[in-house]
Design a protein around this nucleic acid. Structure first.
Length: 316
DNA sequence: TCCCAAATAT
DNA sequence: CATATTTGGG
């Protein structure tokens, strides 16, 4: 474990807007992430059937890849908001004392993106989000239902909360890596990879280089559209949009995809039914993280409590 | 019971 | 779209 990249690179790149160093940058922000070998093969369910039944775990019917995608978008929005608030606050206090030009954490979550609307499914997803309040005019409702029956139904349903478990992050990371591979294949020219990476471009249904650098176990069996933890018919169509969090590894130390649970807390232990006892914790240097969760879902970090604090620069 | 991420409302 | 508020997982 812990091969990855040396910190020096991180420092060098940090704060720069180098558009070309994408590969390096990727490597940088990937610090601490599970290596390909550690990821569960996409073709595999995260929870073995026996175990699942033993614990009465069933695939979540509502949670489609789209849900996940949407959730990640939401998360991004929320995060963005929090970061903005946070950084603006910091500016003030800093500047007041130093009178310096601020060079704060330039949070560039950029690339909102997501709208990968292959065949309009994207707009649908957006619609689904809305859960109109009860006192909605019936007139309006009629109108809505006119445009799309399914949206009308969905509107009244509350979306189940999607919790970004470490496993879920892994599954996503998995996809991201696939995507990366793919981009490496056809890029070398064209827009900056980093931009594209998060352009939510859906992965093609087939991956030419399934064997690629993987070398690693079990990667040989890709080519499957979208083996997400939750199976769902709609999936058949192809990849869901890449729900990655903004420009990973850009100015902001990294917004990596996995640390969404930027600060889940203390006081709760979590049992990982999924086995995966291989830890992804140790080797990572946690600069100034307050609270974080390792890949096993264990909590670690300071217990100091900072209400509404979002780790600004967690280098996983 | 509390914290806070995720969802929802404005 | 940005922010504010609510919900609910843990």
């Amino acid at each position: 474990m812990g091969e990855e990249v040396k910190m020096s690179e991180y420092e060098i790149n940090n704060g720069e807007d180098n558009i070309n160093g994408d590969d390096e940058r990727v490597a940088v922000w990937e610090i601490g992430l599970p290596t390909p070998d550690d990821l569960t093969p996409l073709s595999q369910t995260l929870i073995p059937p026996e175990l699942a039944s033993a614990f009465s775990i069933f695939p979540e019917p509502h949670r489609t890849p789209l849900d996940v995608s949407r959730a990640s978008q939401t998360t991004l929005s929320n995060l963005r908001g929090q970061l903005n608030a946070l950084s603006s606050i910091n500016f003030k206090s800093f500047n007041e004392t130093t009178g310096q030009t601020h060079d704060p954490i330039v949070v560039d979550l950029d690339d909102k993106t997501g709208a990968v609307d292959r065949d309009g499914s994207g707009s649908e997803a957006r619609k689904l989000r809305r859960v109109d309040s009860e006192e909605e005019d019936s007139a309006l409702r009629a109108e809505n239902s006119a445009e799309d029956p399914s949206s009308a139904a969905a509107r009244t349903l509350k979306r189940p909360r999607l919790v970004w478990t470490p496993q879920l992050h892994k599954s996503h990371l998995q996809k991201y890596r696939l995507y990366l591979k793919r981009m490496q294949g056809l890029s070398s020219e064209g827009p900056s990879a980093s931009d594209q990476l998060f352009a939510s471009t859906p992965l093609p249904q087939s991956f030419p280089e399934s064997s690629g650098g993987g070398g690693g176990g079990g990667n040989g069996n890709f080519g499957i559209p979208i083996p997400m933890p939750y199976h769902h018919p709609t999936t058949a169509g192809g990849m869901m949009p890449m729900p990655v969090y903004g420009h990973m590894g850009m100015q902001m130390g990294n917004n990596n995809c996995h640390n969404n649970n930027s600060s889940d807390n203390h006081q709760h232990h979590q049992v990982s039914i999924n086995g995966h006892q291989n830890g992804y914790n140790g080797n990572v240097a946690h600069g100034h993280m307050l609270q974080q969760r390792d890949w096993n879902g264990n909590h670690y970090g300071s217990y100091t409590h900072h209400p509404h604090q979002v780790a600004p620069n967690d280098n996983m």
